[in-house]
Simulated scan of single mutants.
Amino acid sequence: MPQLSLHSPLGPLTLSEEDGKIISLDWGWGRDQTETPLLTQARDWLDQWFDDPTAQGAFPFPLEPYGTAYQKKIWAFLQGIPTGTTTTYGELAQKVGGSPQSVGQAVGRNPIPILIPCHRVLARNGIGGYSGDGGVDDKIWLLELEGVQLSPQQPQER
């Protein structure tokens, strides 16, 4: 499986490809580095996104995350959340069916964070969790990068 790593403001990230689709984005530097056309384009897109996420729009390359049908349904909804906006686990549960807890579990298992923007989903009374290497600090950083104004009253579970 081809992998390609990049330096980012959040630390090293590694993209993985299978059958011409991105299947994961992981924190850390991958052991093997293969510059396929898709991975190179995805790396370049991410570099530009970190410079100005509002100028990039949605990730334009094919994604194929591994997961259950329910998880994939939730991840598809995540891709529709515009840059700089947020939703809650409860609001997402109302749209896809299920409970806020089941949505939270699916969001937490997202294998392609940032590209499938799980950082845009918040808890009703706070930030919620984040599965990135820096945890909630990374989530807050990503939201602020996108211009989201976090309320000073909003509990930030760090």
Rank of each mutant, 00 (worst) to 15 (best):
G134S: 10
I127L: 14
R109A: 10
S131K: 11
G135C: 09
G126P: 03
G129R: 02
I114A: 01
R124D: 10
S102H: 15
S99D: 12
I127S: 08
H119K: 09
P113R: 00
L143E: 06
H119Y: 11
D137E: 14
Q101K: 15
Q105A: 04
C118E: 08
N125V: 05
L143S: 06
K95V: 07
P100W: 01
A106K: 04
E144Y: 08
V103F: 05
L115H: 02
R109P: 04
L115P: 00
L115S: 02
Q94K: 13
D138A: 14
Q149W: 07
P111C: 05
P113V: 00
R109I: 04
L142F: 08
V107I: 07
D138E: 14
V107K: 01
I127A: 03
G135Q: 13
G147Q: 10
D133Q: 13
G147K: 11
I140N: 03
Q101L: 15
L145F: 06
L145G: 01
G147Y: 07
Q94I: 15
P117G: 07
R120G: 06
G128P: 09
G108Q: 11
S99L: 10
I114M: 04
R109K: 13
H119L: 06
I140T: 06
S151M: 14
L150Q: 07
P117F: 04
V107S: 00
R124N: 12
G104R: 03
L142N: 07
Q149H: 14
G147T: 07
V136D: 13
R109G: 14
P152R: 13
P100F: 00
Q105Y: 07
W141C: 11
E144G: 10
S102W: 10
V148I: 08
P100D: 03
S102Q: 15
I112H: 00
Q94N: 15
G108L: 07
G132D: 10
G97P: 08
A123C: 09
A106V: 06
G108S: 13
L142I: 10
S151V: 13
N125E: 14
R120N: 12
A123W: 11
Q94A: 13
E144T: 11
L115W: 01
G108E: 07
P117W: 05
G135M: 12
A123V: 05
V121P: 14
Q94M: 14
L150D: 05
E146I: 11
W141F: 15
I114W: 02
D133R: 14
P152N: 14
K95M: 03
N125I: 02
I140L: 08
D133Y: 11
V121D: 04
L122T: 00
V148L: 02
G135Y: 13
H119G: 05
Q94R: 15
V121S: 04
G135I: 12
